[in-house]
Amino acid sequence: MANILEIEGLSFRYPDSTRKAVVDFHLAVPEGEIVVLAGPSGCGKSTLLRAVNGLIPHMYSGEYSGDVRVGGASVKSSTMTDLAQRVGFLFQNPENQIFMFTVERDIAFGLENLGVPRPEIRSRVDEAMGLLGIGELALRAPYELSDGQKQRVALAGVLAMRPRLVILDEPTSLLDPKTAAELVGIVAKLRLDLGMTFLVVEHRLDLLVKLADRLVVMNEGKKVLEGTPREVLFGGEAEAYGVSVPAVTKVQKLLASDGLVREDELLSAQELAAAVRSAEA
């Protein structure tokens, strides 16, 4: 499948910094993939995300080299308006991306800005609310929503623009475990139903590894590991970069070192339980 995102040798340094935030970064993401980006705080993840949706270089100036292409078009030579329709960005704090007084008006915000005619806005807002199951919240005010609901509203606002690539910046960091699991379920559904591509920065890998096609680990602005979640998590280096290896993986490694289960690179509790049962038998 064609690559929706291509990052070629991207380097970026903020004007007030002595160190580059991203160094010679390469990544190609085929359409419909879910790519998880992990790494310690300050490793350049946020900068990379901004470079993908065009905030860098359009809003943040700095030393920029290399190229980022979304759907074949260079981010550098595209306008923010154009990029806003191709790349959706769910920021970490949903509170700061809800602008209007009611849920439905906020979801419509981007479309209103684009000058989309009213009937079309209506149908796309309803569609986005339907995808996320928040139709009953349509007329609520932002302060009447829980964190999980705010997150969904913000995501609906992103989806209403019908982007092909969606960036999620630590989407579960403010959510309780149950709501976080629900959000991951939504991502899975959107990929399945609409073929959307996701670039996700996430620390809670246990939720996403089962879903992700690829795991990329960054450190000090560079890409240090890339592969399927199994390859990266069982490669042994991930922990050294501060990646929170899921508990299942750790338990399995311990059991395998004692010879209790074979090292089969299991990622879920179900898989591990099955392996233990078959070892007993």
Binding site: H58, M59, M80, A84, G88, F91, Q97, L114, G157
Partner: peptide, 11 residues
């Protein structure tokens, strides 16, 4: 950032 990402000021 969020405004830019949602096409504020496009038209």
């Amino acid at each position: 950032e969020a405004m830019e990402s949602r096409a504020y000021g496009a038209v």
